[in-house]
């Protein structure tokens, strides 16, 4: 289980994260929502141990998070891959880093689960669509079966139809593999439809946490309400008629 306890991060004079506490159990998804600059991506960097904490602790089952080698799925799928390598080479890199062999049967099964034709992996990132590249990004995250996967705006580069299909694929894979997921997104519709808990981040602090149902029905804070109403106004959430 991921435990974030009283985490603060300072960047110069700026307090990027202020006393954040969250936890995610295996098989569960927490969605972190909030405006640009709220600290969402900083939180991911802190979990991955890429930036120093100025206070608090982040652990997995009591030990360091790096020990479990969590995976990250990035926002811009094409930019997440080395343009000179085939997608197959990029996907095998996490295995190489852990000195694990490529299990071709397992790879084929994962490809099928992500609706990826196996020969697509022989192409380079520039030769596939953005939707395909993002599914390869998810494939790369799953290849070592990590217990924790972090998703940084995983759908924002995709069109509305592909977004919903990809979200469903992630959820199906999570049911099979049981990983814990942290999704950072500004799309409240996605967060409400596919998470177990919503955490609203604002100016580096968690303003409120609740279940998606509680959040859509009655956000606790003014900002939570604004966020919910904006999602309705932009058509991400629809009111029953």
């Amino acid at each position: 289980m991921l435990e974030i306890k009283g985490v603060s991060v300072k960047r110069g004079a700026l307090v990027a994260l202020k006393d954040i506490s969250l936890s995610i159990e295996l098989g569960k998804t927490v969605a972190v929502v909030g405006e640009s600059g709220a600290g969402k991506s900083t939180l991911i960097a802190a979990i991955l141990g890429l930036i120093a904490l100025s206070g608090g602790k982040i652990t997995w089952a009591g030990g360091p998070v790096r020990g479990i080698r969590p995976a990250l799925v990035m926002q811009e799928p094409r930019a997440a891959f080395n343009p000179d390598l085939s997608l197959r080479q990029s996907v095998s890199e996490p295995l190489k880093a852990q000195k694990l062999p490529v299990d071709t049967k397992r790879l084929a099964k994962l490809c099928a689960g992500l609706e990826l034709a196996p020969d697509l992996l022989d192409r380079k990132p520039g030769q596939v669509s953005i939707g395909q590249a993002q599914r390869v990004g998810i494939l790369r995250a799953l290849i070592t079966t990590p217990p924790l996967i972090l998703f940084d705006e995983p759908l924002s580069a995709l069109d509305a139809v592909t977004q919903k299909r990809t979200a469903q694929l992630i959820a199906d894979l999570q049911r099979q593999k049981g990983f814990a997921a942290l999704i950072v997104t500004h799309d409240l519709g996605y967060a409400c439809a596919f998470s177990d808990e919503i955490a609203v981040l604002r100016a580096g602090s968690v303003e409120e946490t609740s279940t998606p149902t509680a959040f859509v029905n009655a956000p606790e804070t003014d900002y939570g309400r604004k966020l919910r109403d904006a999602a309705v106004s932009l058509g991400a959430l629809e009111r029953a008629s």
Partner: peptide, 14 residues
């Protein structure tokens, strides 16, 4: 039809 079917994430009560 596809766009219409995928138009929003969730329908929430009024």
């Amino acid at each position: 039809a596809k766009l219409a079917a995928h138009k929003s994430w969730l329908t929430v009560p009024c």
